[in-house]
Nucleic acid binder design. Sequence first.
DNA 1: TCCAAAGAGAACTTTACGTCA
DNA 2: CATGACGTAAAGTTCTCTTTG
Length: 279
Amino acid sequence: MESSRLFFGSNSSSMFYLGNGDDYFRGTSTGFNFEETSKKRPFMSSLDDMLEDENYDEQLTEKKRRLSPEQVRMLERSFEEDNKLEPERKTELAKKLGLQPRQVAVWFQNRRARWKTKTLERDYDRLKSSYDVLTSDFDSIVKENEKLKAEVLSLTEKLRAKEVPEISIIGGDHKEGRDDVVADPSGHVKVEDHFSTGSGGSAVVDDHDGPQVLVDSGDSYFPDDDYTNEYVAVRVDQSEEDDGSDNGQNDFPNYPFATTDHHHHDEADALGWWVWSQP
DNA sequence: TCCAAAGAGAACTTTACGTCA
DNA sequence: CATGACGTAAAGTTCTCTTTG
């Protein structure tokens, strides 16, 4: 963007302002661009008015310079009260600070821009740290899942090798203390999960070749009939007993997540959860 | 001490929008 | 209701001054 500001003289850093109210002429110690500026600032006071300005001499030689600490302090205080500037407040502040109202307006504009930048930076930092925590949690979960999968596979193999005879637990003859190995009348070996809490609860993983079914253990997040849905996924955490409360370390509950629809099936799969599809 | 680069701040331009006569 | 003038916010830029290595 090409600036329309004009500078005169060989060393044109000596700027000055002329005018009252919100509008002013801007020029240098060697000249100013009346015609151009007046086109853009239609409410300019007359040249005579400007020349009568008590600060004229001062402004004539004044370079563009920073506001004094006291001026900035008062502007900051005003900004804290309200970051929008009504015309009355602008005029009042300008008078108090010995500045042009235009300068006050510009200061507020720039201050709002700085505030926005800072806010965005803070927001970014907050989101970034949240993201990092979630990423770390995600990695732990994936690793844990892999470990548990391997463990189950290994146990399944052992059970197969054992060739356990028929045990009629599935038929309702289950006894406390024998909750690890079961086989149904068709010879399918089942492994009960050891991670569920409560004596009455356990999930059973069917080992046959067809689609696997997760049988509700009694303390699932699902309503009683929910496991009849097409997809069921579960994440099991054995790290500690969970009372259902969040410990504040992360945003994941400590035990079974579940999903029951197609959409979440993919998500669960991506997370490395076990997903069983109902036949 | 000098100097170039970077940073900070003041002022600017452009665009968009709301208000009002 | 349409229109033009006006004020202002926001975003981006330019220029100047200060700080820093």
